[in-house]
Simulated assay, not measured.
Amino acid sequence: MITLSLVISFTLSLFAQGRQEGVGPEQLYFPVHDLQADLLVYDEAFKTYVPYITEQHASEQALSAYVDVESNRRYKLLLQSKADGFLFIEAALRRKCPAGQWLVLDLDSLFQVYKKPQLFITLYGAAGAANWQAYIGHPRSAAGQTIRLNDDLLSVRPRNFSGFISFFSAGLLFLLAVHAFLISFFRRAFQTFYNPLNLITADPADDSFLINRPLGRVSMAFTLALSLSMAFLFMYVQHLNINLFSMGTLLPHESGFGTIVFNYGIISGLIFLSLLAKYAFVAAVGSLYKFDTIVNLHYFRVIQSSLLFITILIILVAALNPGNMVEIPVSYVLLPFIVFYLARLAWLYVTLVGQLPVKNLYLFSYLCIVELIPLVVGIRFAV
């Protein structure tokens, strides 16, 4: 009898222990893996995640772990917090964890949503690992309704702060200050460059201080303003993820304000040097054709028309919201510039044909060399 009593007592204790080993709502799940042993915390000193140690990290509110979803298909993720907390999956807020209530997530649905073999979860709430119970469990009976994650649930992610928004506002103010300086110190030249009526006049007025001195102090100031404006538009195009002239691979990729300003300065300098190189090219080709008398007028018209066109584009871009990342085909970006350059080529021909007693064929070939060929080559290497 004593032996039978001992066997019965031992058997009952095993059943009682089995019942106590259940986890989750009403202990209706077998524990497959306890995630307490996998908890991580972010170490500011090492800039990485380190294992949770009670003696060192008892005050941490954010506890993280990697959940092996692929190896635990058909199982459930069971979470409970003693105080109100939150569950983040892959850095996105997915669920609130009310105090004392079990949260049951289906690992199959997590795998279908995220398509990853491992998921990085973060438990945020009261300090310390003792606040949480986290298991991978297998249901041994109907455990009530489980939560299947879909893409339409709440998804709150940290906002990606881009330095471009600050640069965009500061750049507009900077260009406004540049033009305010030009209109204050070079008022007559400003009225000449930014006068559309002067541009469409085939026989320009006697602006010898501009036309005959393309490398003078006044003309160089407006050439620099054009370079700064074109670089601003170039930075906006880069912000739209359109990599022109492979500059995206040559310049630093950080999105900080200081780095963007540094890139802006480099691009402005390259454009300014390119404009000076264009004048040298126009002068060289003009001397070959004996067109020395129209070289300066040609370059003046180029700068004047470009200032008006780029300024209109900047006004249009400023009216848009630069924070909205819109997928724009590169052809839509190049099309306005192609139309502008072709229209400028035609107008340059009309403007210059009356300045020389030569055959039209020579002037046309001259303009093709200095205007059309660089356009074609530029489009070829732009994308």
Rank of each mutant, 00 (worst) to 15 (best):
T293Y: 03
V333C: 08
Q112V: 08
S5C: 09
A343L: 14
S162M: 06
A91E: 15
L153V: 14
L175F: 04
E55L: 11
P25W: 03
I136P: 01
Y289C: 14
V353C: 09
H253K: 14
S9M: 13
L103Y: 02
L345S: 03
L119P: 00
L273W: 05
Y29V: 05
F309D: 04
R148Y: 13
R344V: 00
N150W: 09
N243K: 07
I260Q: 03
S274I: 01
Q56N: 08
F232L: 13
E254W: 12
L40F: 10
Y362W: 13
L240A: 13
P139Y: 06
L233F: 05
K290Y: 04
A170Q: 10
L361S: 14
G354I: 09
A221G: 05
T351Q: 08
V104C: 13
P329C: 09
L307Q: 02
F167W: 11
W102H: 03
L78M: 09
I260F: 02
V383H: 00
A65T: 03
A318S: 13
Y264M: 10
R157D: 12
L210I: 15
N150C: 02
S64F: 07
L110H: 01
Y264S: 07
Y341K: 13
L375K: 03
S219M: 11
L345Q: 05
H253I: 12
W347R: 03
L316F: 13
L352W: 03
P158H: 08
D43R: 02
V7S: 04
V282H: 00
L39W: 05
S305D: 08
H57P: 00
K116L: 13
D207A: 09
Q101P: 04
D151L: 09
S184G: 09
D108F: 06
I303L: 14
L6E: 13
N324H: 10
N198D: 14
A142K: 12
L14G: 04
N198T: 10
L199Q: 12
A134N: 03
G144L: 14
S268G: 09
G22M: 12
H57M: 08
L367C: 06
Y29L: 14
R188Q: 15
